[in-house]
């Protein structure tokens, strides 16, 4: 039986008596591309942060490749992000003082892979060959996002988490980015969870989920919520 790449059950995240997540749950299989859509403030980014181990749920469990995030501890979660997870952000989040090449290579270095050729190859595959020495501010938005995708892909993680990857791009560029991202993931058998408020992403996904007020609703299953009981009840 295949272990899902990521599995979340009954996730709650409460800030100052407001619940950003209300018992959300989901699973992503290896190589699967999932789109999670929802309006601003519905809890999508909160979920991504929990799945990446950057934040802790108020209640619920998350397992990445069978490992319970909570039990891993801070060090374990750091190693997980380093080796098994990739991140693509809405605002690219490239380090402004590093070149294009250095931004991508950093990902490999953190994973303990000292292979500059891999970084160059990743950039070339994304059409950024020849731009290795440029700095982020010298690139267009689309180019910056491609660098971010290269950074995420280069270490061949089990799962890539993409938070509004096209949110800061025009429609045409956005579609190009989604095409690149999903194609590369499928080629490398990497799972991808894309979070977006734009329905365009759904066309590129194997499965679409919806987030409504902290609850994940499977879009294919007619709106049945995917959550557990609330804490304290």
């Amino acid at each position: 039986m295949n272990v899902p790449v990521i599995s979340a059950r009954d996730l709650w995240k409460i800030y100052d008596h407001n619940a950003a997540l209300r018992g959300a749950g989901m699973e992503i299989a290896r190589g699967e591309v999932v789109a999670l859509i929802g309006k601003s403030g519905s809890g999508k980014t909160t979920l991504l942060n929990l799945l990446a181990g950057l934040d802790s749920p108020s209640r619920g469990t998350i397992e990445v490749e069978g490992q319970n995030l909570e039990r891993l501890g801070e060090k374990g979660r750091t190693l997980l992000r380093r080796n098994r997870l990739g991140f693509v952000f809405q605002f690219f989040n490239l380090l402004p003082t590093l070149t294009v090449f250095e931004n991508v290579y950093l990902s490999l270095e953190l994973a303990g892979i000292s292979s500059p050729e891999n970084a160059r190859e990743a950039l070339a595959k994304l059409g950024l060959g020849g731009k290795e020495r440029r700095y982020p501010h010298e690139l267009s938005g689309g180019e910056q996002q491609r660098v971010a995708i290269a950074r995420a892909l280069v270490k061949k993680p089990a799962l890539i988490l993409a938070d509004e990857p096209t949110g800061n791009l025009d429609t045409t560029t956005g579609r190009q980015i989604l095409e690149i991202l999903t194609t590369r993931c499928r080629e490398s058998d990497m799972s991808l969870l894309m979070v977006s408020h734009s329905p365009t992403a759904t066309g590129f996904a194997d499965r679409v989920l919806s987030m409504i007020d902290g609850v994940i609703v499977a879009a294919d299953t007619g709106g049945a919520p995917m959550h557990g009981p609330a804490p304290g009840r």
Partner: peptide, 14 residues
């Protein structure tokens, strides 16, 4: 801070 957040998300330790 933002750079530190990016690095942490990429797997750099505190």
């Amino acid at each position: 801070r933002r750079d530190a957040g990016i690095l942490r998300s990429l797997g750099a330790g505190r």
